[in-house]
Write a protein that binds this DNA or RNA. Structure first.
Lengths: 238, 238
DNA sequence: GGGCTGTTTCCTGTCGACAATATGTGCAAT
DNA sequence: ATTGCACATATTGTCGACAGGAAACAGCCC
């Protein structure tokens, strides 16, 4: 790499935006798996890349650490948090629960104008599926469910759910490399059913759909993992 | 205040412990309401108090901010997060849900030796109630429920629940100033029932007890708030 | 007397430098 | 060949200093 790389931004950023922009960019890269789990994040190298001092970098890393996206090894470097497949079952439990709770809550508080935001997200999701754009699909799916959570009106649920969905984005990113598009279309239909149930303020039906939707996703990812782990291992290679 | 105050620690702390200790101390003081909600936290003053540079202070404040315990006003000071009484109903919903989920989970995975930790916490709680020590009571109650959550074995639930319980400590701190001790004794009994149900691996009974326990606490705090808000306002005073 | 404007002051956001610690490397001894 | 130790290196944790913004204050105009 040439020295005097012009850094990411040449415009002299406004005061206070340094940490924020680094946080946003790194977060996006981690969630999109551009930065592989386990990658070392060197403060000096990052400060050179972003053209700023180590201080804002450190603060951004600290925030990422609080989000659980990076792991800080004391007196050593910080690395992108690894994906622990052993913790997947608890993850699925938590995800399913939050699907249910937020969908139920939304069904209890549904108002016509609040449905607009949800429909908008659903339209974006459908468009991403049609375009076979895995990245946009994952993004839109998250926004769709967060919109439902916001309608449910419980900030504690929304925050926790958003965090779970973000963590899931990295797993989905692994998964959708091999996705066959029959299933995403099914998700679109399921989303439509959920919208209808919420709008009808049918709490129990919303709940059942949330369970079904969650089961669908969980089974999907488990199948993927099983397929992946099932690859024959070449014992002669060692 | 005299200048050259000897600071909180005279021993030259080990590398890396600065942020940690400041975080721990401030966190305790915020949760114990020693630092009132809305109190300004001045970085310079804190650095003088703890006898270290502003850098570790800043990092500690950043971590507290991620925990939602302080609010950072850009380019201005950071303040201890205020308690928003309007968000209490969502809070109670979330708390009840986590009581249920963790208790159910514990009942599903109960093992004899795991019950030891829970019993130990329960003993501490009972001792605090007997001693009329409100602070120790709140602390032990939190540890009791976190121990149950850990037995449930879902790290996502444990983290979220612990955060909710911490936030609740500040509310309880308001409440237990006026506590009459009949009710804490009832909590001790309810805890005992929960332990028995978990140990018997009776999931449904554990669930019912968790609901009952949560309802008890919620009603309690709501009564307190109603009583407080019900104070006659002296209109002539203005 | 009240409202607007320029100034002052305080505090934060950012910077570059130094010190401490963990890892990797080379050498010697068993 | 492997283990142990000393050294070198790389990267973090901490520090003091400077600059930029926002609130507080004073002065001026109406």
């Amino acid at each position: 790499m040439a020295k005097n790389e012009p850094a990411e931004t040449d415009i002299p950023r406004t005061r206070g935006s340094g940490t924020q922009s680094v946080y946003t960019i790194l977060r996006r890269e981690i969630l999109a798996m551009t930065l592989a789990p386990g990658s070392p994040l060197d403060e000096v190298r990052l400060s050179e890349r972003f053209g700023m001092s180590r201080t804002p970098i450190r603060e951004a890393l600290l925030r990422l650490s609080a989000d659980g996206l990076v792991t800080t090894l004391p007196n050593r470097n910080t690395i992108v948090a690894t994906i622990d497949f052993a913790s997947l079952p608890p993850y699925f439990d938590a995800l399913t629960l939050m699907y249910r709770v937020t969908t139920r809550g939304a069904a209890m508080r549904a108002t016509p104008q609040a449905m607009g935001e949800i429909r908008k997200r659903q339209a974006e999701f459908a468009a991403a599926v049609a375009a076979h754009d895995a990245f946009a699909m994952i993004e839109a799916n998250r926004e769709f469910h967060v919109a439902i959570a916001e309608l449910a009106g419980n900030a504690y649920y929304t925050t926790f759910f958003a965090r779970l969905l973000d963590e899931g984005r990295r797993i989905l990113r692994l998964y959708y490399r091999t996705f066959d598009d029959r299933l995403p279309r099914q998700y679109v239909d399921e989303h439509e059913e959920m919208i209808a149930a919420i709008e009808a303020r049918d709490v129990e039906r919303s709940d059942r759909l949330a369970i079904k939707h969650a089961e669908q996703i969980v089974r999907q990812i488990q199948d993927y993992i099983a397929r992946d782990l099932g690859q024959p291992i070449d014992l002669a290679a060692s």
